[in-house]
């Protein structure tokens, strides 16, 4: 859908059309928050899918981000002869910025692409049309449970990310870089407040809403056979990662300045 219409209609009109379609999708989703029926089983299912499936991917990514952060921080701080202060760098970078972004991106990469692929397959197999014909509103049935589930589950994943990445950074600091472990943890705890962690969780839930909305939208507007599903999944990844990075700047400016 995307590539041929860029070529046939020009970039600007394509962007406007896409923006309008997304706004319509968003409005329809918000309006259906107050739909007469809430599909609670779907909601629980989606929470399970997003949470437990993403957790397996989140563990290695968070661990290696923490380890890498520690090594990089050590290399930079060593130039100033302040390598003992690496805990401060790790704590602030990890808990304020990276953990919510990692959780958002991992959920996007794992659960988001799956949503885009699944909804895209349903769109191409005309199953969404079949739902509408049967009088089932697809928004409260498929879209809303996913968005709400991500909003609820993401903060918990962010907490897991805090723990895993700080722990792995600690292990690297002690066993690879031979720093003092208790001094490291002292620096982590003295530079991070509970409010920072809560703000990170709020960030995470905003990212969850963005990621799921964008991937559901990309799947919902897919067209063009098997190739269309691939294009929709690809577009979902590109759009959601760009959106997360942009929104992160805005949220950081709002929360920490």
């Amino acid at each position: 859908m995307a590539l041929p219409s860029i070529q046939s209609r020009g970039l600007l009109s394509f962007l406007f059309a896409e923006f309008g379609r997304f706004t319509f999708f968003l409005m329809e989703s918000v309006r259906n928050l107050f739909y007469r029926k809430f599909y609670f089983t779907n909601f629980i299912d989606e929470m399970n899918t997003i949470g437990s499936r993403s957790l397996l991917v989140l563990f290695p990514v968070a661990a290696f981000i923490g380890m890498n952060l520690c090594v990089e921080g050590y290399i930079i701080f060593k130039k100033f002869g302040a390598q003992d202060l690496v805990g401060m760098f790790v704590a602030v970078a990890n808990i304020r910025e990276l953990s919510p972004m990692i959780a958002g991106l991992v959920v996007g990469a794992k659960a988001g692409t799956q949503m885009a692929a699944r909804i895209g397959t349903m769109r191409i197999g005309k199953q969404i049309d079949a739902l509408e014909v049967m009088g089932v509103n697809p928004y409260p049935y498929m879209i809303l449970p996913r968005i709400l589930a991500a909003v609820l589950v993401l903060p918990l994943l962010v907490v897991v990310t805090y723990f895993v990445s700080t722990l792995s950074a600690y292990l690297v600091a002690v066993f690879q870089l031979h720093l003092n472990g208790s001094a490291f943890m002292d620096l982590v705890f003295s530079n991070i407040t509970v409010q920072d962690m809560l703000k990170g969780m709020v960030k995470g839930s905003v990212f969850g809403a963005i990621v799921t909305t964008i991937s559901c939208y990309s799947g919902y507007t897919a067209s063009g056979g098997a190739r269309g599903v691939g294009v929709a999944t690809n577009l979902a990844v590109v759009r959601m990662s760009t959106a997360i990075v942009f929104i992160n700047i805005v949220l950081t400016q709002m929360m920490f300045m």
Partner: peptide
């Protein structure tokens, strides 16, 4: 496995690449 398989493959590819 058809269109569903393409979506699944894209999903797996993204996850494996990120990790």
């Amino acid at each position: 496995g058809g269109a569903a398989g393409v979506g699944q493959a894209t999903n797996d590819a993204v996850v494996a690449s990120v990790v």
